[in-house]
Amino acid sequence: MSLAVKIKNVSKSYPNAEALKSITLDIGPNELFGFIGPDGAGKTTLFRILTSLILPDKGTGSIGNFDIVKDYRKIRKEVGYMPGRFSLYGDLTVEENLQFYARLFNTSIKENYDLIEDVYKQIEPFKKRRAADLSGGMKQKLALSCALIHKPQLIILDEPTTGVDAISRKEFWALLKSMQQKGITILVSTPYMDEAALCDRVALMQEGNILTIDRPGQIVQDFSGKILGIKTNQMHALLNDLLQMEQPERVYRFGAFVHLVTHDNPDACAKKVRSHLEAKGHQNIMIQEQPASIEDCFLALMHKPETP
């Protein structure tokens, strides 16, 4: 039985910042739900409220049939939480850490081995090593094992792939997928836009607001306008020169390219840009239309003027 998560009008302020501004969310059972957003978007605060670590100022929420404020003891039994910071004991070995967390939840490694097997067998060769000596990716796998050891119905992972190399990130997401197939609801946050595509649905968050909630494919489809990827031999000057153009819609660096968003005919726009850049002395100009990515959508949503 996997759990659904409901949140209604939840707000939370800290003395010098408003972390969450009236968030409403509905996450279905067995969903792999992603929270995407830069640091300070309120992801961690939201997770801490869901895991009953902090209390919301306003609003209500439930996990399954449990209220997030009143039934915190029951929630703590059913939910697995992997905090953003590495929160295992560096001076204990891999095995000792796992054993300790198993005992915390009154279970044992053996009892739930089938659930964590996929994760744990990747780090098992190092089980006598101290957790502090593990690589970043392995630490996260160990943390995931620890969060899973008590057979939770819902796991909440706070930026599990931050600071982890690309291959380990891939492996980690594959593990999450396999956990989902075992019937667990998964809430995961990440600052990496490319990981959004791997979720069933994502919420784009910024400064305590949810900008949009949808399937990643739908978000990309809903992108209005066309994107031109531009590359020249003078990448430094490029951004400034493009900004000087008449009626530039939006221009920003994107990987090896500079992206320019337009609502006009892309071919006509490309021509205009090319002549403008040639006049500025750019050479090897390359302009191509590119499909919108989640990041483009996110940036577009971020800059959308507030609708009154």
Binding site: L53, R76, Y81, S87, Y101
Partner: peptide
């Protein structure tokens, strides 16, 4: 944080 989210 991890200790607190456990039922202990």
């Amino acid at each position: 944080e991890a200790l607190l989210v456990s039922p202990v």
